[in-house]
Design a protein around this nucleic acid. Sequence first.
DNA 1: AATGAATGAGGATTCATTCAT
DNA 2: GATGAATGAATCCTCATTCAT
Lengths: 207, 207, 207, 207
Amino acid sequence: MSGTARYSPGVTQRNLPDERRPANDGPKAAARNRAALVAAAREIYAESGLSAPLSAIARRAGVGQGVLYRHFPDRAALALAVLEENVQQIEQAAAADGTDAARVLGVLTWHQTESTAFVGVLHADGADSRSGTPAYAQALSRRVERALRRHLPAGHRLGARPEDLMIAIAMVSGAVTGPTREQRERRALAAWRLLGVEVGPVRPFAT
Amino acid sequence: MSGTARYSPGVTQRNLPDERRPANDGPKAAARNRAALVAAAREIYAESGLSAPLSAIARRAGVGQGVLYRHFPDRAALALAVLEENVQQIEQAAAADGTDAARVLGVLTWHQTESTAFVGVLHADGADSRSGTPAYAQALSRRVERALRRHLPAGHRLGARPEDLMIAIAMVSGAVTGPTREQRERRALAAWRLLGVEVGPVRPFAT
Amino acid sequence: MSGTARYSPGVTQRNLPDERRPANDGPKAAARNRAALVAAAREIYAESGLSAPLSAIARRAGVGQGVLYRHFPDRAALALAVLEENVQQIEQAAAADGTDAARVLGVLTWHQTESTAFVGVLHADGADSRSGTPAYAQALSRRVERALRRHLPAGHRLGARPEDLMIAIAMVSGAVTGPTREQRERRALAAWRLLGVEVGPVRPFAT
Amino acid sequence: MSGTARYSPGVTQRNLPDERRPANDGPKAAARNRAALVAAAREIYAESGLSAPLSAIARRAGVGQGVLYRHFPDRAALALAVLEENVQQIEQAAAADGTDAARVLGVLTWHQTESTAFVGVLHADGADSRSGTPAYAQALSRRVERALRRHLPAGHRLGARPEDLMIAIAMVSGAVTGPTREQRERRALAAWRLLGVEVGPVRPFAT
DNA sequence: AATGAATGAGGATTCATTCAT
DNA sequence: GATGAATGAATCCTCATTCAT
């Protein structure tokens, strides 16, 4: 990645002379490419926002533009793939032994401070009948909700009304601004405190 | 010498050479045009978000592209002009006779639910030392804070720490999603409720 | 000049309230404005080349755009007005008491190193049947030639063929490159030396 | 976070959705397109000067705008590519069997009279520390100088001082004006004659 | 199955020129 | 006579998307 083949005057650009192509590793490469694209997207989104050029993501992933389209038919599909990984971590945190609401919220908060994608896409919940992300984003949203709700103790601040939980998450996302992750984490924690909600350590889920 | 003749429209350019020009209302129109642009921007932002094409705003305002650039040198300047109006209303609400925190928050909330511009620009507070909007957005942010803080009763939930007030506003902004204003208002009120903050009637300030 | 009224948000741009206009000095101002425009053009041309925006020239001159168009119907007219002044100085140098070819060439060279306009427009001699500058530029060219030729001693290097004189001037203009006037002067003198032509002190004509 | 969402084409953009695309000859066309662009640029520059619209060049080359930008990131890169070809011819002329200074100068002069690009870009030598073309133009300049100098006989008029050679070339370029190539050649030869330099046949290098 | 070139629409931005005041 | 706002065409440049190889 990085290369950014700039301007090389006088040297006719041409492909590798037909032999010695980067090697076609067959179907095994497909999964690897998909993963690389999601990882690259995560980075690029963090750096440049959700509307970063797709070509930048493909370049960072070290694949051609076509591969991106093969795996993700549109911009939203890629963003959702990033989100999917986040949601899976939250679900895993919720499924872990001896966990509790605070711990799950810590993982959630980690992803909020880490990835812009999380912030922007998930809260397109409700009747967002726009183009790309119809049902899937809602499904993700519900999965996050379910993962959290099963750990909410009776009488928890966010358990009173059904929508409160997701509104609270949206609120914290709104507070998460600032150029560095540290600053964003500080603000996220301040936000949870204002909501009177206790949050465990802010970090990704890892077994 | 020197020169590096960059882009030079040269001889080619020539507007409607003799035909009818669409009328030039003269300098008197300047103020009117500026206002029309801000109003159009407010509408377009609400419909399409902050990154809507500037040409759409000019069209909606009924002016040429050039007028937009004359009044607002860049995208941020226009967004800030919209915000400026919002902030002025909040300040007026804060200055009105017999007002209180709840009432001011009601006006603030109105603007949060009304205009996407409010959300997103104002909360670029803190160390956003990037290119465009450095000091002015912060100044607006501080004006909102000051307008509100003077009405916060001692011991108010949001008065404990200095940053809490602006974080709370950011949080509510984060919760304000949805396609209709009504839905956004409902969510905004739910958010304030979760913060334990009482909010007056959600409406623009009008004497 | 300079002002460049940048971005002043929230303050509706409006003219001085009808009274207190910059004062209409009547016809006397016309000549002054014209002179200011030519002077401004000379400066701007030197800084930014012949294709600099006309608005920049008007601004530097401290007049409105309209005034520029009143005095100079098109881009070429303004450039020629600048040139006209240069040519007049050369003619004056040629008419001065006790002058000689070297001295006149010194004045010519001064203008070559000083103003891009001189370099670019005058040598559009010959059958340049393009848009703007048909006859007038040629007339100027001939006036320069006449002013010089009357001082060429018999047998001067540049007197052999009729066209040699103007070609030599064009050649020196070609050599005049570089960011500072000093550098351009050095190169101009080197060029004259290569032509075997003696040049007097390089400076504007002043009685 | 962060974002300052600059220009984001967003959802709107969509090329010919299903219709027929004008054919994509695949990567094989890349080299051909690059060559076509350089050739088109050479023509357009000769006709309209260095500041001709890039779109005109793309059109003449029969390619889309994007291709031009892919191969040449900016205006200068394209001009330099044209120059590069000229300089290569001069180097080949200098490397040919039984050549001499006059013959090389003939090839040089051909390019001076043929292409406006040659004039103007190459002589941005010296301290042109501006943005775009810093080192490469100087490198080209030096290559021309080297190619010529190795054939200058001892005691040649242009060999006395190191800078004289390039100044002379700039001078001849300055003299090369006029609408037809023939006229420009006549003036170029007159210029070399004034410099006392013998020039061989004015034509491109061809084995 | 991957590559990366090409297309070309879309949006940004700049100025020449006119004209109400 | 002067001012400077408005117009809008022209040009620049960027990317989403397709597709030959």
